[in-house]
Design a protein around this nucleic acid. Structure first.
Lengths: 316, 316
DNA sequence: GCGGCGGATAAGCGATCGGTTAAGAGCGCG
DNA sequence: CGCGCTCTTAACCGATCGCTTATCCGCCGC
C-alpha cells in the first residue's frame, strides 16, 4: 500500500472515473488502473465498482476513502511542514488541562519566550489527563502541565515534578443558597469535569455528584459566569477566583470535600530524550516569575482562544 | 517518501535510537538507517541528530513527527477499516448543522433504517456550512442536511433540494423582560451561532448583534436552558420549542427579524455519482413520516451525544 | 592505542513500484 | 453489427524500495 496507490484511489473515487483521475494526475490511464488494481489486491476489496455509466464505492471503499484522503493530505502537509520549519523558531508544545490552557498557558509561555531571549514558538493544547503521558512519551507534545502523571513516571518513561500547589473550592452566586446535599446541586464545570482523571472530576466524585447533575461548559469562564447567574455551583481553583470573590460576583460554598488540595505537575521525557528547550522551561517553572504568573496570571481574565493539540492519533 | 520510511523515522524519533527502532521493526539496523537517510534526502532535513549519547529532533523533524505518526497510524487503520467493512451494513454519513444533529438526525436515520428494511449504519456529524459542500463533493460525507448549498449546486457538483420549511424565533425566560434593542441583549446560541453561514448566524446579523453579546453553548438544549434561567435570549426553531413554550418554561420574544423563514435542504452528489442508499434517503425525506419526524422528532428532548465527523481534512 | 558501541556507508539482490505502449473486454447506442 | 467509450490486461522497462552482509567512521572508557 503506497501513497501513490492511495491517491489514485482517492481521485478515482472523487472524480468517478479512472480516465478523469489519470488526467488529474497527469499520467496514463493504465497507470491509474494498475495502481487501483494493486490496492484492490492488497486490501482484498474491489473498493470501487462500475455498473454501466455509474460508479459506486463498496462498503470497504467508503470506509477507506476518508482515511486515504487524510493520508494523502498529510503526505503533502509533511513536505510543507518540514520545509517551512527551516529556520523557524524552536517550538514548544504544551498539553494541559483545560483550565491551565485557559488561564495559565498563555501568559506562562509568553513570559518564558521573553525570558529565554531566543525565539520560541509555544503552542498549548488541551488533552485528557490519561492522554497526556501518551502524547509526551510519543513526542507528540513536549511538556504536560496538569495533575501528577506518576504512573508513567514510575516506569521511567516520564519525569514528573510538582510546580504549583493550589486549592480547589466551590463557588456560586451570592444570591442563591445551595441547599441540600452537594451531590444534588447542579454543578457547572469546564471540559475537564468530564475527564475522570482531572482534579475537577476527582472533586465531583468525592462529593458523589452524579453525571446527571453536571453541566459542561466550553470553558471555565463560562461555567463561572453561569454560576454567578445562579445556575448552580461551580468548582474552581481558589486563587484564580480571587477577582470574582472580591467583587462579590461569586461566593464560596462549603462542602465536605473543599477546599481540596491539588498540585500541578510538569511532565516531560527525561533529559537526553527531549529537546533542550524543555529543560529551560522546567527551570523557568521553578522561578519566582513563573510562580507569580501561575498565582495571578493576569489582571483581567480573558477567556483565551486555545488551539487544540496537533495530531493526537497514537500509533500502537 | 514511503510509509516504511515514515514509520522508521517515527520509531527512531520515539525510541531515541536507530538500534532500538530496528529491533522494534524486526529488521537489521542498516535497513532503518537507510530508510532514514532516504527520508532525510527527500525532505532535505536531518530530522534527527545525535550529539553523543543524546538524540534530538531538528525543527523540521519535530514538525514532521506528529504528521508522520498520524500517517502511519492511518495506514494501519486503513487496512483494518476495509477488512472490517466486509459484510458490514452500508453506511450513510450525514453532515448537518448542530441543531439538526441534536434533534433530528438521530430519529430520522433510525426511522430511515427501519423503513428501508435492510441494515444501514447511519452516522451524523456536525460541520460548518461552508465545509458541507466540500465534504459531500469529496465523498467524505454522503448527504448534507442544512441550509441551501446553492453556490455549489449551481456548479452542478451537488444537487440540493428543500426538504423542510421552518421558522426561527427568539425565546427567553417568562420572568425576564428583554429591554432595549435586540442587539444589546445577551444572546445564547448553540455552536452554529458562530458559523457565519448558518441560519442562526443570519438571524443574529439581521438584528445587528455584536459578537461580544453572543454566548456559545455546547448544544441547543443548553442554550435554551440558560435562556429559561434568565441568562438572555436564545434563537431557536419554532416547532422544536413547542414543548417548552407550552409548559411556560420559555416565552417568545418579538424582534424585527423574527419569525424568520428558514429552509432545510438535503444536498448530495448527483445520482450516478453517489451510493444508492443516498437516493433512498432523499426519497424518504419526502415522505409524510419524515416530515412528521422533523416537525416533532420526539416527545422529550434529550441532548443527543453526536459524534464528530470522520476525517475532515480535505485534499486540495 | 585499542576494543566496544552506535551509526553511517557500500555493494548487492530480489521485489515491487510506477510508468509506458499496445491490445483486448464489456457495454450502450445508432 | 460495428462503433465509440471506458476500463482492464499484458508485456515491458527503468528506478527505487527494502532488505541483507560486510565494512568504515566517530566517540567513549580504559
Amino acid at each position: 500500500m503506497t501513497l501513490t496507490q492511495l491517491s489514485a484511489f482517492v481521485l478515482v473515487a472523487r472524480l468517478g472515473s479512472v480516465k478523469a483521475a489519470a488526467k488529474a494526475l497527469n499520467v496514463s490511464e493504465p497507470a491509474v488502473s494498475q495502481a487501483l488494481a494493486a490496492l484492490r489486491q492488497h486490501l482484498d476489496d474491489q473498493l470501487v465498482i462500475r455498473d454501466a455509466a455509474a460508479m459506486t464505492l463498496t462498503p470497504g471503499g467508503a470506509r477507506l476513502l476518508p482515511i486515504a484522503s487524510q493520508m494523502v493530505a498529510l503526505g503533502a502537509e509533511a513536505q510543507a511542514a518540514v520545509r517551512a520549519a527551516q529556520g523557524l523558531p524552536t517550538q514548544l508544545r504544551l498539553v494541559t488541562t483545560s483550565v491551565i490552557a485557559e488561564f495559565i498557558a498563555g501568559p506562562l509561555t509568553d513570559a518564558f519566550a521573553r525570558r529565554l531571549g531566543r525565539p520560541v514558538e509555544a503552542s498549548s493544547g488541551v488533552a485528557a489527563v490519561t492522554e497526556m503521558p501518551v502524547l509526551v512519551a510519543n513526542r507528540l507534545a513536549d511538556v504536560a502541565l496538569g495533575p501528577d502523571l506518576a504512573d508513567s513516571a514510575r516506569e521511567k518513561e516520564l519525569v514528573s515534578e510538582p510546580v504549583f500547589r493550589c486549592k480547589l473550592v466551590a463557588v456560586t452566586s451570592p444570591r442563591s443558597a445551595a441547599r441540600g446535599p452537594a451531590a444534588s446541586w447542579p454543578w457547572l464545570v469546564d471540559p475537564s469535569g468530564v475527564d475522570p482523571a482531572s482534579d475537577t472530576s476527582r472533586l465531583l466524585r468525592r462529593l458523589g455528584v452524579p453525571e446527571s447533575r453536571v453541566m459542561v461548559f466550553p470553558n471555565q469562564t463560562a461555567a463561572w459566569a453561569a454560576a454567578a447567574d445562579g445556575d448552580g455551583v461551580a468548582p474552581g481553583v481558589a486563587h484564580l477566583l480571587s477577582h470574582q470573590l472580591r467583587r462579590g460576583e461569586l461566593r464560596l460554598v462549603e462542602t465536605v470535600a473543599t477546599p481540596m488540595e491539588a498540585t500541578w505537575y510538569a511532565s516531560s521525557l527525561p533529559r537526553g530524550l527531549r529537546p533542550g528547550v524543555v529543560g529551560s522551561l522546567r527551570q523557568f517553572l521553578a522561578t519566582p516569575e513563573a510562580m507569580h504568573l501561575m498565582r495571578a496570571p493576569h489582571g483581567g481574565v480573558p477567556p483565551s482562544a486555545f488551539r487544540p493539540p496537533v495530531y493526537v492519533t497514537i500509533w500502537s
